[in-house]
Design a protein around this nucleic acid. Structure first.
Length: 271
DNA sequence: AGTGGCCCCTGGCGGC
DNA sequence: TGCCGCCAGGGGCCAC
């Protein structure tokens, strides 16, 4: 499930690939719900110019001002191969340009690509990016401090802070010693400041390793078939019933905001 | 403002 | 070994 570090890894991969300087020659949509053209004209003939990211979404900019907005959701990723090539049964949308073939691979079909004239509405619905240089610890404390929901639920809310998903929220809360069910407005200021620094540290560390790949399923491969290397560094996620490396307590698993939630009952007390 | 439920979908896993 | 049934999970939407 691509979160900020995985999407950023895909962005960097695509940015440095030959695809970003190409003119799209063909667009093939195998699954209608995966691709929506909200712009006035066809994609073919437009050229890619650059690729940016906000939260978990990618914005592929075209030379005519339009934008392809990519949301990977649960199981989406890109695979870049040579063209022509065989289509995998889970390739939902395929772009070709020159001798390259970029496939939006999405087994569970939750992901979407939208072609739009104006991405400002989509961008506007997203809260500030979790790694934005303008997200100071004071701003973060302000954004969280007024919310009366469980801190985990607030961190998962993409309209407040964008980019965090289930894996990294669990990791960040463990690193900051905050129980996932504590009301955001009740978290002490020093803890919120610690949350801020740990969030940046963890996200950047994961990006440097290409993100997290779970298990060995194909859906967890990133663009180009490269697996992220952060999984061994996860402290609580997917480690319920193992020992906490800080205090040796048994890591617990509960449900918060309809999500499986991993935490250390000793390092993250509910007070 | 916040919560809870439903839905989308299917690979993977537990149970037998 | 094989089959069946269940479930995770991001996010949009809706009811309360």
């Amino acid at each position: 499930m691509p979160e900020l570090p995985e999407v950023e890894s895909i962005r960097r991969f695509l940015s440095s690939s030959g695809f970003m300087t190409q003119k799209v020659e063909t667009l093939l949509v195998h699954h209608e719900r995966s691709f929506r053209n909200e712009s006035g004209s066809e994609l073919e003939g437009a050229a890619f110019t650059s690729i940016t990211r906000k939260g978990k979404k990618l914005f592929i900019h075209l030379d005519d001002g339009r934008v392809l907005v990519v949301h990977f959701s649960m199981s989406g990723t890109f695979s870049l191969t040579s063209s022509p090539g065989p289509d995998d049964i889970h390739d939902r949308v395929i772009f070709t340009a020159g001798d390259l073939r970029l496939a939006f691979h999405d087994p569970r079909r939750f992901g979407t690509i939208i072609l739009t004239d104006d991405d400002s509405l989509i961008r506007g619905r997203l809260g500030i990016d979790a790694l934005s240089s303008t997200l100071s610890k004071e701003t973060l404390a302000f954004l969280l401090g007024e919310k009366k929901r469980a801190i985990k639920s607030v961190l998962l809310d993409q309209s407040i802070i964008s980019g965090l998903g289930n894996i990294y929220v669990d990791e960040i809360l463990w690193a900051a010693g905050i129980h996932p069910l504590i009301q955001a407005s009740e978290v002490p200021l020093p803890s919120l400041y610690l949350l801020h620094s740990q969030m940046r540290r963890i996200l950047m560390a994961s990006i440097s390793l290409g993100g997290t790949s779970l298990g060995d399923g194909e859906s967890n491969y990133h663009a180009g078939g490269v697996r992220g290397g952060y999984y061994p560094y996860l402290k609580v996620f997917d480690r319920d019933s193992e020992r906490c490396e800080r205090c040796s307590s048994v890591i617990g698993k509960i449900r918060v905001a309809q999500r499986g939630t991993h935490y250390c009952p000793s390092c993250q007390p509910f007070t």
